[in-house]
Amino acid sequence: MSDLRIATCTYQEFSPDMGTPIRTTAGGVRFPLGYQLGGHARLVTPPWELVRAGLAADAYEFHYRRQLADTGVDLIRAELLAIAGAWDLDAPAVLLCFDRLDKPGQWCHRTMFATWWTAETGEDVPELGAKPHRPAPTLFDF
């Protein structure tokens, strides 16, 4: 066990005070960043074949979680520790992707990773970006 702390966020919403920014996307960043990435977590990155498959969220998650399970917690932890250790182990390793969660119907591999990691290790993985969209209350909700 280590002192590694993990969080998730979007590239767009990340700021350097949140921790060590770590890429988890199959493709590179599509726009200029106001910060330098700490590295690329290849073991957490979904393969292009999965990204391009156009699967529904539940099917995507099934295949992605299988990838994570096949790799295992120990190897993933070692990779994240190597990246974060080069920066600041006192700060969270922040796994980044493009998908904003405040849009209706949006889902992302980073939240699937967080759920898997917590189930496997008992360690919480907070989302630092916008929280998932919730419909506005109606008159009947009061």
Results as ranks from 00 to 15, higher is better:
Ile83Asn: 05
Ala91Ile: 01
Ala130Leu: 13
Arg42Ala: 10
Glu123Cys: 13
Gly105Trp: 10
Cys97Gln: 01
Ala78Gly: 09
Leu89Lys: 13
Thr118Gly: 06
Pro46Glu: 03
Cys97Thr: 00
Ile83Leu: 11
Leu96Ala: 00
Arg42Ile: 03
Ala84Arg: 13
Phe98Lys: 04
Asp90Ile: 00
Leu43Lys: 06
Thr71Ile: 10
Trp117Ser: 04
Gln106Ala: 15
Arg110Leu: 03
Asp102Lys: 06
Ala53Val: 07
Ala130Glu: 15
Ala119Met: 13
Gly122Lys: 11
Val125Tyr: 00
Pro46Leu: 02
Trp117Lys: 05
Pro126Arg: 10
Leu75Phe: 05
Gln67Gly: 01
Trp116Tyr: 07
Thr45Ala: 10
Val73Asp: 04
Arg110Cys: 02
Ala82Asn: 14
Gln106Val: 09
Asp88Asn: 15
Asp88Gly: 03
Leu50Trp: 06
Arg65Trp: 13
Ile76Asn: 03
Ala78Val: 00
His109Glu: 07
Thr121Asp: 10
Trp116Ile: 01
Thr118Tyr: 10
Asp99Val: 13
Leu55Met: 10
Pro92Cys: 06
Lys131Trp: 08
Met112Leu: 11
Ala86Gly: 14
Asp99Tyr: 00
Thr118Glu: 15
Cys97His: 04
Asp70Met: 12
Glu120Thr: 12
Pro46Trp: 07
Arg110Ser: 08
Thr111Trp: 01
Leu80Met: 01
Gly122Ala: 08
Ala59Lys: 11
Ala86Tyr: 00
Glu61Val: 03
Cys108Thr: 11
Trp117Val: 02
Ala57Asp: 12
Ala59Tyr: 09
Pro47His: 04
Leu75Glu: 15
Phe98Trp: 13
Leu128Pro: 04
Ala53Gln: 08
Glu127His: 14
Glu120Met: 15
Leu95Arg: 02
Val51Thr: 08
Thr115Leu: 11
Asp99His: 05
Ala53Pro: 05
Ala69His: 09
His63Leu: 15
Ala57Ser: 11
Leu101Met: 15
Asp70Cys: 10
Pro46Tyr: 08
Tyr64Asp: 02
Trp117Ile: 01
Ile76Met: 11
Glu120Asp: 12
Leu50His: 09
Ile76His: 06
Lys103Leu: 15
